[in-house]
Design a protein around this nucleic acid. Structure first.
Lengths: 198, 198, 198, 198
DNA sequence: CATGAATGAGTCTTCATTCAT
DNA sequence: TATGAATGAAGACTCATTCAT
């Protein structure tokens, strides 16, 4: 609802192009060097602009990352929408697949955000928010499965969701492999007792 | 010969005490401020020694953290020993309990190590090594359960272990709660199909 | 030919209006923020024009202030004309009144000029010139009073004028109050020995 | 009562010497170049120390000036003590002489402080305080003269003091000449109506 | 061993001015 | 004329590390 990374919007096309170039270069440089090791000059060079030009659109290094992150977060939140599949198993597989895909694409940047979160509280909150959202959605999905008698009723949706989300995130972060989805879906299904149904 | 992060071993008793003080203060300061925000002077002040004294025992800031980390890693590796309980469920509960306990105790420092890992490759390797060890042990445990027919045979021990370890680590990091063990043990048991046995 | 600080004269009506707007905004901004703290962009914003437009009419920040100052100096010099009153006391009161009034009106800007005089020699000279003129006029007035036997003959007009001018300026700068004129006139009259007359 | 310019006190003799060198060089550089035009590096070079050494004792450029100023203000306040002479005229001459002497010695630095006062409020307050103190002391002296019937009773001590102090300060600032004291004393005496006595 | 002073490379950020459109 | 984007030199301040005592 609010564009947190407003800084200074370009008014012309040329400006728009420059800002995009800076943003895109920034993402690339951040991913390669991390937050702390990235110099504002690196970003400028990568974008092919002068040192000071970065400050035409962004106030600080922090706000450059914030702008980069905004897009990523939007993408991830988008990937978190519940699946509309009828079959419970498929729903889970679907959701995990979408999240794993999105997460993998942004994995390196998310790590950078985590690094930055030590220096700037803002990013800690962003990550917390993202995780909380993920857990909420999964908890809701579990509750729904329970109402449908498709998942074990004795599981606490909230705690279970937290654990399963941790698994997905951790898996995506440290063991990125193409088969991840199968493994995860199987484990989720078993953990939730999906096999009990019907 | 034994201590890898020794830098410069103290020769006198007084030296030994000073080094300990520095190390202990360092851990505390790192935990409170993070790696990047910690100044060598902060560590010195906290230890009640002069600025330069830290360099009597450690070559760099990095090596101070390395020395602090060493103890933590040893403790965590120790916690990873397989349980000797006879009951499979108990074995899992036992192992997770020990790891969660150890992890919680060192959670903040491990975060700091993660932060430092962006600046100093050394720490990235340490964390990777720790995770790999964790996964290996869990994979071995799963394989053993499978041989005992206590766990579903169709699970890939390696992949499953990776996912479950990710769950434990993520859970310990972001949702530290006292009931964690119950939740985790239940989910592990279901995921592994322990209930199928007998 | 007449305006010394012209930089670039506007050729069109629109230009004339823009230049006036910039000049007027500049004065206001300088008065509020001082010379050093004023950014060219602040002036542009206040005038409702683009950043670069200021440079259409002025070469440098310094020359903007110079243009602003010019008007002020003219006004002050105008206020320095000797009074035409017949009564000596009235002449003094009159002159001081006019100067104090003019000074008060421009007090803040004169302070700004003083600030700028540290960075740009030009303004130091302007202030010196203004003071010198003031002293000359007062010295002449004193000499005239002496010739009329209305002021003590043993006073050195030059030195006395310098001291009295310092008093007026200092008073106007640091203790601006509506009663200033009375106090000053009384002191001047006594100092000059006006009461001795008749 | 409080040492406002504490920053970081040296603990050793060597440190004490370095701090003094920096302070003394700083004063000299400030006087020559003004506040705004002085670079921290200029101060360091002048003191023969490395760039960073200045920061061993002072937090900011501002605090360097504050430390320099402190000594000056103390000296000036010291010069403001009332004269103990019996003769009223002598008392005035005495006091003015002392103040003019002290002021002249520090005139350039006081100008620099005035310059800095535009950027840093702290210095504005220091100058205001100094002026207020001066006025208070002079007002008290005038009141005393009035009680002794040595000065005209119809003068408002406060307003008169303000005007006379302005005269002294302005005179000292802009027309530093060796004869200043005679001129000022004469004018003060006449203005105060000292001649009326006896 | 311990101290604390000294070093100086490194970085972010500012902003007057220039320039393409 | 007017615009607003681009430039890049400049400077304050930090802090890990070294060194003289």
């Amino acid at each position: 609802m609010t564009t947190a990374a407003a800084d200074r919007e370009p008014l012309t096309d040329r400006g728009r192009r420059t800002r995009e170039a800076v943003l895109s270069s920034a993402r690339s440089v951040f991913e390669h060097q991390g937050y702390g090791a990235t110099r504002m000059g690196d970003i400028a060079s990568a974008a092919g602009v002068a040192h000071g030009t970065v400050y035409t659109y962004f106030d600080t290094k922090e706000s450059v990352l914030a702008a980069v992150v905004q897009q990523v977060i939007e993408d991830l939140l988008h990937a978190l929408h519940a699946s509309s599949a009828a079959d419970p198993l498929e729903r889970i597989s679907d959701a995990n697949h979408r999240y794993l895909t999105a997460y993998s694409e942004h994995a390196r940047l998310l790590q950078v955000v985590e690094e930055a979160s030590f220096a700037e509280r803002q990013f800690e909150e962003i990550l917390e928010q993202l995780r909380a959202t993920h857990v909420q959605r999964v908890a809701a999905a579990i509750a729904k499965l329970q109402r449908e008698d498709a998942a074990s009723a004795d599981l606490d949706p909230q705690a279970t969701a937290a654990a399963l989300c941790a698994m997905v995130e951790g898996f995506a972060r440290h063991w990125p492999n193409p088969d991840a989805n199968n493994t995860l879906t199987t484990l989720w299904a078993r953990a939730l007792g999906l096999s009990e149904k019907e």
